[in-house]
Each structure stands twice: as C-alpha cells, then as structure tokens.
Amino acid sequence: MNFMYLYLPVALTSINLLIPVGLGLAVGLLSGLFGVGGGFLMTPLLIMFGIPSSVAAATDSNQIVAASTSGTYAHWKVGNVDFKMGLYLLIGGFIGGLAGVQVIKILKATGNVDFVIKMTYVIMLGIIGTYMFVESLQSMKKAKNQSQESGVKSQESGLTRFLKALPFQTRFEKSGVTHSLLVPLVFGVFVGVLAALMGVGGGFIMVPVMVYILRMPMHVVVGTSLFQILFNCIEVTFLQAYTNHNVDFILAILLLFGSTIGAQVGTKFGRKLKADQLKIILAGIVLVVTVKIIFELTLTPSLLLAQGGGH
C-alpha cells in the first residue's frame, strides 16, 4: 500500500496524487489568466501519464466545470462577466457543436477524420497564435510611442463596417460595445463547429474572436469566456458520463483540487497584468502548442498502436 498513489475506478489505473493535482494547478492558472479551459493541454498530458484517451477527455471536461465555476465566480465578483454576450455565444456554440458532430460523422464515413482534425488544429492554432503575437507586440510598441501619435485615429476595417451594417444592433453594456445579435450567434456557431471537430472546449478560439472581432476589453473577455466554457463543459460531462461511462470521478476531484485554486490565483495575477501582456503570453502558449503538434506529426512515434476511443 502506497499512500502517494490512488486507484482510479473508471480509468482502471493507479496514479501518483501529485500528478493530477499539479496538472490541475498549472492548467487552472492558465484558465484564470486567459479564460481558456486548457483541454488542449490537459488531455494530452493525462494520456501521457497513462490515462486512457477517452477517459482523459471526458474527465477533463468534468474538471473544467470546477475550474471555470471558480474562475467565473472570481471574475463575476470584480464585474468582468458579460452575461448577455456570453448567452448569445453559448446559444451559437451549442448549435455549432451539434453541426460539428454531424461534420465528424461525414468525415468518418470518408475516412479522413484524423487528417482534417490535425490539420484544423495546426492551421487554427498557428494563425491565431501568430496573429495575437504580432498584434500585441505592435500594440505594446504603440503604447510606448503614444505621446507622439496620440492624435492618430485607428481606421475602421472592412469587417467592422460590415458588422455595424447588420440588423438587430444591441448594446452590450458590460463590454461597452454595440453589435448585431447575429454576430455573437454566428461566431458562436463557428467556434462550436471547430471545437467539436477538434474535440476541445474552444476557449482559445473564442478568446481571440471576442478580442479582435467583437472588440471586447481583455479582462471582460476572460470572464465571459469562462462563463461560456462552464456551460459547454457541463453539457459535455453529462453526455460523456451518460453515453460513454468514461468520466472518472476520483481523477476529476484530484484535478479540480488543483485547478480551482489555480483559477483563483490566475484571476488575481491576471488583474496585475496589462491586456497586451496577457495576450502576448497566451499567443506564446498557443504557438508552443502548435510547434508541439507539428513535432508529433512529423517525428516517428514510440508506439505505433494506441488505445481506441475518442475520435
């Protein structure tokens, strides 16, 4: 008997307590800082530590419920959650998720599912990471030279003009922006499709959409993203537990023990950072993950067989 290890009744494996608690802490920190669920980091790490892939993905969504509750609560307390915007994104995301599942079915039938998923991952992460990185670098430089260029007015892009011309314009008080109701709905659908395709919560796509397209302030983006992720993951956890029986409750508790604390620390720490600093760190993480996936795709894997499950 070794008290450092705990047996997981659904994953049917034993794990050192420090691994899930440490992973939870690290991913919770990212969650509180940037408003991402961290599934794109956590699931591969759990698989690396011997958790079957289907259990890793399902249990991670259970854990994200706790981390995003903790994070949403912390952000709501300081007034950083735009519930109205979150709700529209959520509705869009829900519809997109359903559509994404259908797309996966079609791809599975053609036998190209894995190729499309991996390519979507690399391309989306690569574009988002590079764009955020370059943009936040430029805006940091701009902030330095602001005294000289204070009179320069930023030009409206074609996309912004198009969004303003759409019907059903409404004011989102918390974010301080005015958009057509269709905008968060349509982008919600878009992110939902991608999230279903990539098998992740979609926080790291949703955050840039809110920052660059919806033009919401970074701190409200983080809180609103967490709110949206919370409901997505509640739905996913239930479906996984009900249809696939692969949520490991004990593993989830170990993970959430770390992640709920991490999310609180992340939120506090995030308030001390400037929006551009937050953006550039997130961009860096997204780019590192992209590089990691490219390595995985091009280097010969150590084992050529893997457990089934997932998609």
């Binding site: 259970n62 854990q63 419920v65 706790a66 981390a67 995003s68 509750t69 903790s70 994070g71 949403t72 609560y73 509640i234 956890t237 239930f238 537990a241 949520v247 409750f249 989830a252 508790i253 959430l256 023990f257 709920t260 999310a263």
Partner: peptide, 11 residues
C-alpha cells in the same frame, strides 16, 4: 453528481 460536486468545489 460529478457536475454538482465540480460546481460546488468551484464555488
């Protein structure tokens, strides 16, 4: 139960 405990832990 898994969801409720996660939400309760978060709060």
């Amino acid at each position: 139960i898994s969801i409720l405990i996660a939400v309760a832990a978060g709060f």
